[in-house]
């Protein structure tokens, strides 16, 4: 409530704790394989000004580096395909499915 006694939108937002991104990802089960099923060629990312993958990846796996490149973690990947679709640098993302039986395992989706 504000000083004037009127409810404000953002009061609702704080009625429950917003979880950290890592806690959010920890709700998902992943059977990680040692082979990286998605490979990002960081050298191709250096000239990329948009870096759409960094924003769009729902698992937040693309991390921009200070030298303009991209570091990618494949372990907590939903295998959705967003990254290669929004990428506009030919050959920067090599995308395959993880080896059979590995990767994300949904339970309540």
């Amino acid at each position: 409530m504000t000083a004037h006694g009127t409810p404000r939108n953002h009061d609702h937002a704080h009625r429950w704790p917003e979880i950290s991104f890592q806690d959010r990802m920890d709700t998902v089960r992943f059977d990680v394989h040692e082979r990286a099923h998605i490979v990002v060629d960081g050298s191709k990312c250096e000239g990329c000004s948009t870096q759409h993958c960094v924003v769009a990846c729902p698992a937040n796996l693309f991390v921009p580096t200070s030298d303009g490149g991209i570091v990618f973690n494949y372990e907590q990947c939903f295998e959705c395909g967003t990254c290669y679709l929004v990428c506009n640098v030919e050959g920067a993302i090599t995308w395959t499915y993880p080896d059979g039986g590995h990767g994300v395992v949904f339970r309540r989706t």
Binding site: W16, V28, C80, T82, L85, F106, T109
Partner: peptide, 10 residues
């Protein structure tokens, strides 16, 4: 409500 699972798909 507590987040039980987060998910994504195209």
């Amino acid at each position: 409500a507590e987040v039980k699972e987060y998910s994504a798909h195209l």
